[in-house]
Design a protein around this nucleic acid. Sequence first.
DNA 1: GTGCGTGCAAAGTCTTTGCAAACCG
DNA 2: CGGTTTGCAAAGACTTTGCACGCAC
Lengths: 151, 151
Amino acid sequence: MKNPNMMNTLRERIKEKKYKFTRQRQVVLQAFLDSREKHLSAEDVFAMVKDENPDIGLATVYRSLELFTSLDLLKKLDFGDGRSRYELNDRSLNRSHHHLICLGCGKVVEFSYDFQEGLKDQIERDNGFQIVDSQLKVYGYCRECQKKNLL
Amino acid sequence: MKNPNMMNTLRERIKEKKYKFTRQRQVVLQAFLDSREKHLSAEDVFAMVKDENPDIGLATVYRSLELFTSLDLLKKLDFGDGRSRYELNDRSLNRSHHHLICLGCGKVVEFSYDFQEGLKDQIERDNGFQIVDSQLKVYGYCRECQKKNLL
DNA sequence: GTGCGTGCAAAGTCTTTGCAAACCG
DNA sequence: CGGTTTGCAAAGACTTTGCACGCAC
């Protein structure tokens, strides 16, 4: 098992909010810790966990993802492919990362970008908003799809 | 009818791609030109047009929205409320505008923000992506919901 | 033991599709 | 007139919900 310390942190965050740390909740989190692909849909998680836990239900996966999102353990993402995707909300990685989405093949790549100092303040001042989070999606064509389009 | 010139422009863009400018397609576009709310869902559009066009089908609205998005007349948006929303892709307003989304009441406010000169080039260089468009979503709490949270 | 959490199936919501009829150009 | 486009209804895809049982604490 990778990242046992990370799992401990996640368990503490669940228990400190008085939720139970069930086997199902653990294996859903483990899927995110183990997965090379960071952006998992409910079906993705379900597929990953049901081999070792054949009795887990898809509804439970959905309920876990919703709970974890509300606890800020996960972030819910939408890449326009008709299903919600989730990624670990790794607060230790404090640089904000965003997503490049290929319009050709749907591939998603992450990139780092920190907004200008002062932008947050300016938006908050201009609009009276108290900012919590932001997501930047950049659409375009990846190298491979650019080549294909030339053919 | 407001913006007859805008409608003409839209019609030309449709016809130049060899699609037919049907009554249904016109009234769907008209809904966007007339609406005070800029971010319309398929159901929103359907509700707006069916008074004057009781025989229009919801499926036609969906098909029109999809077509217009592919023609870059509309932009497809996702605010996490479980349905797709669309807004006019007004290329004459060339400053990029983005969205503030209230986590309390769901209200969406637009704001302008132009990314730093050079950021686009840097992303394209670093990742081999050819950038077409970008969407920035900022989540937080609007003034009213900040007050409510204090009660 | 108690109450939160789960599995299953059914229902719900949004969106897409098949097909005959209608319509634009 | 011919190929697009439409309406309707049905199907499809994703997600949520009701309820009895089971498990964490």
